[in-house]
């Protein structure tokens, strides 16, 4: 279509000069019949061009620009519409980008808030409900201690000192346990016996009434309570020659 336009356009220009030169002297009937439709065709073309090519006069168009007038016009229209001032100096494209950024920001904030306020339901508990006592008893051996008679008497100074340090150690094992810690209440050393030194201990747990069966059978089962202590003893890096050393194999739970 563009080639056709161009050819007709130049033909029109030539025709114009030709037209004016010819008309005067000869006034040929043939010429008139040719040149008149020529002129009318050129007029029609100019008018169509001005109707859809808004800003460009026909002669000023290079061939490349005239190649896709329809595509160009839609791109131009979108450009123009995006550049339209909505209010003040804010243009349409700024608003569109802003909306996108806002959506992404809302998503990110929501995720961050979710992560921040996320409460691990397993870390939540109400200690006031833990009322039902649960006891476990057992014994362990301190191979590096020498049994003396004053250890028979739990109120003796030596017994008190040893018991206090052992109670602290045992309590530390259970309070640091992720599963058992919240239920742990108290560890006590009830007696010392002969055989290097054998200590009898008692562990007290407090559990909520509503979960007592689950806890008795699983979390605070004898197997769990025993093995948490046992694996602590196996893990300890303590020097086996240390006075407070507890022999892992000697751990019992009745």
């Amino acid at each position: 279509m563009d080639v056709e336009l161009h050819v007709i356009g130049t033909a029109d220009g030539n025709g114009g000069t030709h037209f004016s030169g010819d008309r005067g002297p000869t006034s040929n009937g043939e010429d008139v019949t040719v040149s008149l439709p020529d002129a009318s065709e050129g007029d029609g073309l100019l008018s169509t061009l001005t109707s859809d090519g808004e800003r460009t006069p026909l002669n000023g168009l290079p061939a490349s620009q005239t190649s896709t007038p329809q595509e160009e016009t839609s791109v131009c229209r979108i450009k123009r519409e995006l550049n339209e001032v909505v209010f003040w100096k804010v243009r349409l494209w700024m608003i569109i980008i802003f909306i996108f950024v806002l959506i992404i920001a809302v998503i990110l904030v929501a995720l961050a808030v979710c992560a921040a306020i996320h409460e691990d339901e397993d870390e939540k508990f109400d200690p006031s409900l833990f009322k039902l006592p649960l006891y476990h008893n057992g014994s362990f051996e301190l191979p590096n201690q020498v049994f003396t008679d004053d250890l028979f008497n739990m109120s003796s100074n030596k017994s008190q000192v040893l018991a206090a340090s052992l109670q602290e150690k045992v309590a530390g094992v259970y309070t640091s346990s992720p599963a058992l810690g919240r239920y742990f209440s108290h560890a006590s050393i009830n007696a010392f016996r002969n055989g290097s030194v054998v200590a009898d201990y008692q562990l007290k747990f407090l559990i909520p009434e509503e979960e007592k069966d689950w806890l008795r059978n699983f979390t605070l089962s004898r197997e769990m309570v025993f093995n948490v202590f046992r694996q602590f003893l196996y893990d300890q890096e303590a020097d086996p020659a240390q006075p407070q050393y507890i022999a892992p194999d000697s751990l019992r739970m009745f």
Binding site: S177, P178, A179, L180, S221, R222, E223, M224, F226, N227, V228, R230, Q231, Y234, D235
Partner: peptide
């Protein structure tokens, strides 16, 4: 081999020393 009372956080490897299971006498 057994290990008791471990918290395994997602995508984070926890390493520990297992011990022979002792649950038969319970």
């Amino acid at each position: 081999l057994c290990r008791y009372d471990v918290v395994v956080e997602e995508d984070r490897e926890v390493t520990f020393r297992p011990l022979p299971c002792q649950d038969s006498n319970f």
